[in-house]
């Protein structure tokens, strides 16, 4: 398999001097063509900074990013990003079709061709009938499907997704996860997906890269040994899945820096790693739950 994305010695700091905040430190990894790699890490660990560096939206302080062998300077042409906040990343003045055609304006000369490609991409996400609607007329899950269609319509060499399903309710989230797996299987896309949700990273990924707390560096690079056909119930119940997510939870937990203040009694009483991992998972689920509730 050929390498699609290569990240070498990537570092990024905000500000300068002693006050500088180091968001990412000496990151290196590759993503192979047609692979779906998930990056999982605690909230605020610098995942979004990493993604923005890869997308060329910010210039990293050090290191380099190559896409199919070409060094990334500025925003690459054949890359697309899906952001978490669909309601803020869709253009409200454009119809669903207009939004999907937006990136094609600079890429495809013919109007008819743009329209055909937008319609095709909307078909992939099951929104063929919503082309003339406006974003505000759609539910959150449908809006995120529009932004996925918009990204796919450009036929990107690499699709970057920044917590794409973190702002929808649990059922929609499961649907969108399955939609991503299906679209990606049918159209052979290379995807790098950032999430804070351990279960999601295992469920979606061919590989999971575990990130440490800020400044982000890679703690583990795990292959997900699950069949390509996955489903929400049996895959999540399988022993491979459970083992992997427990391992990731433990990795993430071990890398947490020691709390500055004395931890609450319940936390300090924990002696076994097993217990700590369970607690981390519970907290993780709680966080996910709160996100969907708001």
């Amino acid at each position: 398999m050929s390498t699609m994305l290569e990240v070498r010695g990537l570092a990024h700091r905000y500000g300068a001097g002693p006050d500088a905040h180091v968001a990412v430190e000496d990151l290196a990894f590759t993503v192979a063509k047609d692979e779906l790699a998930c990056i999982v890490g605690p909230s605020g660990c610098g995942k979004s900074t990493l993604l923005r560096c890869i997308a060329g939206l910010i210039k990293p302080s050090a290191g380099e990013v190559s896409l199919h062998g070409d060094r990334v300077v500025g925003v690459p042409d054949d890359l697309a990003v899906v952001f978490q906040d669909y309601s803020r990343s869709l253009f409200p003045w454009l119809s669903v079709r207009g939004n999907v055609e937006f990136p094609l304006r600079t890429r495809v000369g013919s109007r008819a061709e743009r329209r055909a490609r937008a319609q095709e991409a909307l078909g992939w996400v099951g929104l063929s009938d919503a082309a003339n609607k406006y974003p505000w007329q759609l539910s959150g899950g449908m809006q995120q499907r529009v932004s996925i269609a918009r990204a796919l319509a450009t036929r990107p060499a690499l699709l970057l997704m920044d917590e794409p399903f973190a702002s929808v309710d649990a059922q929609t989230r499961a649907d969108l996860e399955d939609l991503l797996l299906r679209v990606r299987r049918d159209h052979g896309s290379t995807v790098l997906l950032v999430t804070h949700d351990i279960d999601e990273s295992v469920y979606l990924g061919d590989r999971v890269l575990v990130l440490s707390k800020s400044p982000a560096s890679i703690v583990a690079d795990l292959k997900v040994d699950l069949p390509a056909d996955r489903d929400q119930i049996s895959t999540r119940g399988s022993s491979t899945f459970v083992e992997l997510r427990t391992e990731i939870a433990r990795l993430l937990h071990d890398r947490q820096p020691a709390p500055a203040e004395p931890a609450p009694a319940a936390a300090s009483a924990s002696s076994s790693d097993e217990l700590a991992a369970e607690r981390f998972l519970a907290a993780e689920r709680e966080e996910a739950h709160q996100k969907t509730a708001t």
């Binding site: 997308a55 690459p76 697309a80 990003v81 803020r88 990343s89 937006f102 990136p103 600079t106 450009t154």
Partner: peptide, 26 residues
Amino acid sequence: DPLLLDTARSFGNSRARVLATVALPH
């Protein structure tokens, strides 16, 4: 919204194009 500008930029639009296609309609 800066995310709207980032979205337009992430599709490879120049500063001038982002102004014309995002700032003006906004």
